[in-house]
Amino acid sequence: MTTPFLSVERLSQRYPDGEGGQTTIFENASFGIERGEFVVILGHSGCGKSTIMNILAGLAEASEGVVIMDGKEVSGPSLDRGVVFQNYSLLPWLSALKNVTFAVAARYPDWSKDQVLSHSKKHLEMVGLSADVFHRKPSQLSGGMRQRVSIARAFSISPKLLLLDEPFGALDALTRGTIQDELLKVWAGTNQTVFMITHDIDEAILLADRILLMTNGPFARVAESVEITIPRPRNRIEIVEHPNYYAIRNHLVQFLGKHSKELAGPTDAVENRPETVRIDKTAPAARSPKKLAV
């Protein structure tokens, strides 16, 4: 097995439980992400998704284990890993444009002012914002627009890995739909590696190449890696017609509704690697879910 672009190796996170002991959030979690892949992680609250995200971002440190990206160990935050947070990732005293330019200027310190400006504007336009909102403060923008600015900022610095922490969690369903489309459009034009947290199964299927499923915490682990066997480009309306859509969706619902609880708890394994699950109704040979060991 070759080493993937991003390799999470035997990551554990423990916190003191307040009674002298320790609570293990997740243990020996190992998984990999390939370059250019869009990976979504799904799991119930408390399974440590956000902790994993923060460790990947370098904002938190794991109790045990390492993360290796592009041959180097991740330690501390870096411009190589862009983050879109659910809320508050824009600085409220700066305009939408300045929220992007400061990031671009930090990423490309030797660019001229004009270069920074045109690069920032290009990315704001890419996510569907028009020039008349560039100079508004975040408080004067709708929730959807704010998250577009965040996404524009994240793409404008072309990080090696883009981390999305429930980016659409605070948005209403209709806005979420349109921004998902914008995200897919922007992402399609790049070779951007993305790791995203969500609670929304349909969102996960629409966006992901692969979905990682986590069991419930404590002692959570990444139990399955479900390949999304629906060809791109996808869009929200056509995707539901695809024969694989409901098969995959049912599998995910079953896992989150039932298996995530049944599989919960500590294991004896030294390393918890997810099982790869490939569901493809279009290939006649593989009618039933086929499990492959990685």
Binding site: A57, G58, L59, G76, P77, S78, L79, R81, G82, V83, F85, N87, Y88, S89, L90, L91, F102, A103, A106, R107, I157
Partner: peptide
């Protein structure tokens, strides 16, 4: 100061 804003600074290597 909101921790999220400090994190924005940290992830942008300021």
């Amino acid at each position: 100061v909101r921790k999220d804003w400090v994190n924005v600074a940290r992830t942008h290597e300021l």
